[in-house]
Every structure is written in C-alpha cells, then in structure tokens.
Amino acid sequence: MPVSKLYVEGDGRDPIDLSILQALLGGRPLVVPGGSKGSLKPRARNAREENPGVLACYLRDRDFDFDPPLDRSTPVIDSLVSGNNGLVLGWHWCRHEIESYLIDPRLIAAASTIPEATIVDALRAAASEIQAYVAARWAVGVARRDMPSSGALATRPTAFVGHEFRTMTVKYDEHQLPDWVRDSVLRYRDATNAALADDVIREHLKHYLRQLCLAIDGSIEDVLAWFSGKDLMTALAPAAYRSIAPGPKELRQKLRNWVRNNPDHAISLFPEWHALRELLRR
C-alpha cells in the first residue's frame, strides 16, 4: 500500500524541503509540513492512530545525528511502526540535508553551463577550508547523541508508574522520596558527564577531523556525505558559480527552482531520490 501522507521538516517561512519534495513526488504522497525534526515522528504516528486508513510517514534530515551510511542509494530507515514488524514510519536522508543534494556538481552542471569539474574543485577547496569547523560540529553532534534524553530523568518514581487514577497501593514516603530525587539526578548527571567529558570530546574531534580528511581525499560523494550542504554552499568560492547567482542564498534558490522545474531530470541524478519515490509509492 503506498504512503498517503509524508511529513517533512519545515514550515511556511522557508519551505525548501516541502517545495522540492512536492515537485519530485507530484502529490503522491501528499507532502505536509511537519515542523521541527523532533516533531515528525509523533506527528506521523498520531496521524496513523487518528485514521488507520492514512499511511503517514516522515522524512527528516540526517544532520549530525548519524554517520553517513555505506549504502547511499536509498534513504535510511529512521524508525519503524511499533508493533508492526518491518513497517517503516520514517526515513532520513543519506546526506546531511537537502542542500547537500542541491550543491552536487552533477545537479549544478545540469542547471547551468558551469562544468562539473569546476564545482568539484570548488567543493574540495570549500571542504578543506571548513574542515575544522565541521569536525567541531560533528564532535558536539556525537556528544548530543550519547547524552541521555530528558525522558531519562523521570519525574515519577518507578513504583508509582501505572497507578494513575487507581487506588494507591504504594505509600508517599517523605523520607524515601528525597533519596529517589538525589539518585535520579546523580545517575542522569553521570551519564551526561560521561558524554560531555573533555577527553571524549577531544577524541570525537580527532576522529572526525581524520574522517573529513579522508572524505576530502576520497570521492566528491564522500565530501557531500560528510559535510553539511549548507556549510559547503556558504563556503563555496563565489567565482565558481557567479555566472548563475551572486551569492549562496541566491544559488540555493536558483538550484531549488531548477529541481522544481525539472523534477524527472533531478530524480535521474540521484538513485536515493529515485529509491525514495519508489518506497513511497510501493
């Protein structure tokens, strides 16, 4: 059964993902704004619960929440529908975000008369320039991944869970509750400190600096997978694209419009986009 509704990051103020995906998918499925990255999953889940006939899913940026996958030919499964083995609730892009595709040399070459090689060289130069900055972003991103979620600091002792609106069988022990507070906070603080420890962060920084070096020396796909598309677009030498746009903001808009005007051509450039369309319509 094909997906009927796809929640996508963003809102009406800067609907770049929404406008591109609407053009790529042509209404199959319906593309709707899902707000922030964190709200996509509950929205898709709620939409399914409210109307079992609506097969709602979501698509989000990969950001620094996951390392790039080895197989970049299809979007990565982000979560499954609980209680339904194998049914996908959402995916994330293989690359950092939608701009990571817009800035692909093949897309820029298709959308302009700029040779692909010019953009490849400019992207490598931009990546070298922002390498330390992007490694720092990865280091913090990984630390965030390793941190416990706020839900891990529960506001209700385990013994009280499930007792709402029932006759209480446990006692409110005014001597034990302060101990529970202290233990809970301590456990949470320890887990947080472990994720944010100096030596751990230093190790992350070293690891990602090395990883980004390898990406720059590797294929341009590696650069586009490991670096943020927005960062690359901002750092790209304007001389490389001056013939089509005066600055990064206009370049992004120009490339967005090209994709919207040429959705079939754009899909043919990226196996991942083609796979996404097939997954949603299967």
Partner: peptide
C-alpha cells in the same frame, strides 16, 4: 494529493 499533483503538473 490531487491538488499537489495538479500544481506539479502545471509546469
């Protein structure tokens, strides 16, 4: 979905 399909088809 048909609204978005028609919008995409116009071009």
């Amino acid at each position: 979905p048909e609204q978005q399909a028609l919008l995409a088809a116009l071009r």
